[in-house]
Design a protein around this nucleic acid. Structure first.
Lengths: 128, 128
DNA sequence: TATTGACTTCAAGCGCGCTCAAAGATGTAG
DNA sequence: CTACATCTTTGAGCGCGCTTGAAGTCAATA
C-alpha cells in the first residue's frame, strides 16, 4: 500500500482522519494499521471501494449496525466463494492445456522440426 | 458476454474476423465459440487483455509457439493459485468476523437494547 | 407501405481505483 | 547555511475494460 493510496483512502472516508505528529505528519496507530490490513484484505479479494465505504460508515456508528455489517460481510464471503470456484475451474483447465502443450512439444522434438500438419486442436476439447 | 464485448474483442485482435452471413451479420462457428469460452474463462480469472492478445497472437502462428504459450499459461496458473490463496485467507477471516458479529448481536438481544460500553474491538484480533 | 428490430460501423465516453504533478513546509546531514 | 529528503495539500490524469451513442443497412411483419 503506497502513501498515495493511504491518502486516497482517507479522502474517500475509508479511514478517519488519523493522528498527527507535531510537524503535521500522519502517525498511524496499531488500530489504524489493523483496520488498514483489513481493508487491504477486502480489496485484495475484489470488494468494491463503495462497499468498503459502506462498511466503514456502519462501523463508525457502533454496535447497533452489527447486523447490517454482518450481512455485508456474508455477501462478500459468498462472492469470495464464487471467485474461488471460478479460479479452481480455470486452474484445472490450464493443467489440461499445459499438459497438451507438453505433448505438442514432445512431438516437435521427436520430428526434429516443426511438423506442418498435426495442429492438435485443443479448444473444443478443453473449453468444456 | 454481450455483443458489444464480442465486437470489442474482435477489434483488439482477440478473435480473428469471423465469418458472415450473406447479409453481413456475423456467424460464430463452434470453434469460435470454444475459443471465446476460453477467453471468457481467462478474463474471469483476471488475465489482462494484453496477455490474452499475446496468447492469441502466438496461437495464430501455430505449433512453433507452443513453448511460449505454455509458459504464458503456466504463469497465469501461478497467478490463479496465488489468488486462490488470498481468497481462502479472506474467507477464513470473514468466518471469524461474522461469528464475532453474531456474538455481539446475541449480547444486544440479551441486554434488550444496544449497550453503550462493550464495543468488541475486533480488528486487532482478526486482522492477523 | 410503414415500422419495428437486429444487426452494421466508428468514435467517443465512462466507472473504477488509484497515481502523479506541483508547490510548499519541515527535519536531518554535511 | 545549504542541500536534500520527506512529508503536506489540492487537483488533475491515467490505464483498463468495456459501454454507449449516432447513423446507417437490411429482413420480416402489421
Amino acid at each position: 500500500m503506497t502513501a498515495h493510496t493511504l491518502r486516497y483512502y482517507e479522502r474517500v472516508g475509508l479511514i478517519q482522519p488519523v493522528g498527527r505528529a507535531r510537524n503535521g505528519h500522519r502517525r498511524y496507530s496499531e488500530a489504524d494499521a489493523a483496520w488498514l490490513d483489513f481493508l487491504h484484505c477486502m480489496r485484495a479479494t475484489n470488494m468494491p471501494i463503495r462497499e468498503m465505504q459502506r462498511y466503514a460508515e456502519l462501523r463508525e456508528q457502533g454496535d447497533a449496525t452489527s447486523l447490517e455489517r454482518r450481512k455485508l460481510l456474508e455477501d462478500h464471503q459468498a462472492e469470495i466463494a464464487a471467485q474461488i470456484e471460478a479460479l479452481q475451474k480455470a486452474h484445472a483447465l490450464l493443467t489440461h492445456k499445459i499438459a497438451n502443450y507438453r505433448i505438442i512439444e514432445e512431438r516437435i522434438r521427436a520430428a526434429g522440426s516443426v511438423p506442418v500438419e498435426p495442429e492438435l486442436e485443443d479448444e473444443l476439447a478443453t473449453a468444456s
